[in-house]
Computed example of a mutant assay.
Amino acid sequence: MKFIRLATIAALSTTILAGGAATVSAQEVREVTTDGQVEFRAGGEEDGELEVIPPEVDPDVEIEPEIPGTTGPLSIVRAARMDFGSQVISNQDKTYNMVAEMQPLRETGELVPYVSFAHVQDVRGTNAGWDLQVSLSDFTSNTQNNVLTGAEIELVTSRIQYDGNDQENAPMAHEDGLTLLPNGAARSVMTASEGQGALASSVVWGDQEELNARLTDEEIDIVENDAIQLSIPGSTAKDATTYTSTLTWELTSTPDENGPSGA
């Protein structure tokens, strides 16, 4: 029994001495730093389809991509359609406002007038810049006077909607009064210089508040968007038919260093 008791006492003594030594050599640590990390890569097909980000939040609309299945990393996700309605044949020079594009409300699907816009998404992660251009073909029909000679479209006013936090990285819009001539050179409508245009950008034509007001005006049958206009000379022969044209939108990764072209 004595042997067991002595052994126990010796063990306790050793523990106390060791604890005392640790107290003497250790220091209090109340702040340390560690590393955190995240790596990003360019978006691609495996990451799913790009979604249109509407430039206006009211009304709340849901807009499909121009080409279903668009995945990036540098893509035109949406482009404007231009319908100038039904007009009376005239021998006077005439300018016609575009009929406002209609988009479905997210909750009900009801179609409402909405601003026109071209929407680009850049998820390359290179900040290399890009240039969005548009060109116009002749307005033609299958009738005797099959070309609207002298017709031209004017992009009267525009603005940029950029969805990045730093607005200094927003691209530039074209100058007011940019003219599209049938079979003429492509014109830049939105340009991101190097260091600009990452994520989602739109060039927008029209004032949504004005469109909303026109919708509620009982005297207005067709809501027009006067930010885009078609001009046709009175001397151009016009048949009683529908004339159609093609707008070609092209996005390049080598923007003009001078930005979008003027009128």
Rank of each mutant, 00 (worst) to 15 (best):
T70F: 03
I67W: 02
P55L: 02
V57T: 15
G72T: 12
T70V: 11
P54S: 01
I53S: 11
G48S: 04
P59W: 07
V57Q: 14
P73V: 09
I53E: 06
E64W: 04
S75R: 08
T71E: 01
D60Q: 07
V52M: 02
E62W: 14
P54R: 00
L74F: 08
I67A: 13
P65K: 11
P54N: 00
I53Q: 13
E49S: 11
D47I: 13
P73C: 11
E56P: 01
I53R: 07
G69L: 09
I53G: 02
V61W: 00
L50C: 05
E62N: 14
I53L: 12
P65G: 09
E46Q: 15
V52S: 04
E62L: 13
V61D: 00
P59M: 09
P68W: 10
E66L: 13
T70H: 04
D60C: 08
I53C: 06
I53K: 12
I67E: 12
P54A: 03
D58V: 13
P59S: 03
E66W: 10
E62F: 10
P59Y: 02
E51A: 10
I63D: 03
I63A: 02
I63E: 01
D60E: 13
G72C: 12
D60S: 12
P65L: 11
D47H: 14
G69W: 02
T70W: 06
G48E: 01
G72K: 04
V61S: 00
E46N: 15
E64Y: 09
G69Q: 06
E56N: 01
E56V: 03
T70A: 11
P55F: 03
E49N: 14
D47P: 05
P65N: 12
L50N: 04
V57M: 14
G72M: 08
T70Q: 08
V52H: 02
P73I: 03
